[in-house]
Design a protein around this nucleic acid. Structure first.
Length: 215
DNA sequence: ATCCCGAGGG
DNA sequence: CCCTCTGGAT
């Protein structure tokens, strides 16, 4: 049984979902990696508030390792899960120095061996920094892939494989941002706003939620 | 109240 | 598979 093509869905939702410029805010592989680790279960706004001062004081793995978990914690104490993240970032920086000469590895196994880096974070780094054909499946994209029928799967890996297989390699990076924003602001877990969804005609979700009655 | 641009541990 | 860690958004 043939599945619907993802391309028209992506084209439809791309119109109202601009691509964020993470690469401009975090210009080095190390700063992007740390920023992504800090972003787990936390909004970008909260992370972006603490990272400037943190990276001003410790822009490299060497300086970050020297900073230590306690002072890293002081910098990031306003974001969620900050105690765990401070510990992880300190250990992560230390491991980068010890094992990888202070260079962020372009290798999945090496990345996932770093504390605070799971599959989703590794996929973001591999895609954003090294241009590899990966799709970082978070809860939004997992839900959207299943709900729309465009990339159904019982596990994160199944959805990930479906998306990577069906989306052209050159489109994976913008598609990642469009799908996440679409899932967060429109195809929401609670009240998906199908009546204003530009991709509704390519989606198998039923029943599509109707527009609330006009006032 | 509930969920999340998760990961680690049991 | 389950749970916990946490602040913020809705």
């Amino acid at each position: 049984m043939k599945r619907a093509d993802i391309a028209p869905f992506l084209t439809a939702i791309s119109a109202n979902n601009p691509t964020p410029q993470t690469e401009l805010l975090y210009s080095t592989p190390f700063s992007l990696l740390v920023a992504v680790v800090l972003s787990a279960q936390t909004t970008d706004a909260a992370v972006n508030k603490v990272t400037p001062a943190l990276f001003a004081e410790a822009p490299t793995p060497q300086t970050m390792a020297a900073l230590g978990a306690a002072r890293i914690g002081h910098h990031i104490r306003t974001i969620g899960l900050w105690q765990t993240k401070a510990k992880n970032v300190a250990a992560l920086a230390q491991l980068l120095v010890e094992r990888h000469n202070g260079v962020v590895p372009a290798d999945r196994e090496a990345l996932e061996a770093l504390p605070g880096v799971g599959r989703k974070t590794a996929n973001v780094v591999l895609n954003e920094i090294f241009g590899q054909a990966t799709m970082a499946v978070d809860t939004h994209i997992f839900r959207l892939g299943n709900r729309t029928g465009l990339a159904p799967g019982a596990t994160v890996r199944a959805v990930e494989d479906g998306l990577v297989t069906r989306i052209p390699k050159s489109m994976l990076r913008p598609a990642h941002h469009w799908l996440i924003l679409h899932g967060r602001y429109l195809c929401k877990a609670r009240k998906p706003e199908c009546w204003r969804c530009p991709g509704a005609q390519f989606c198998t979700f039923t029943p599509k939620t109707p527009a609330p009655d006009a006032l």
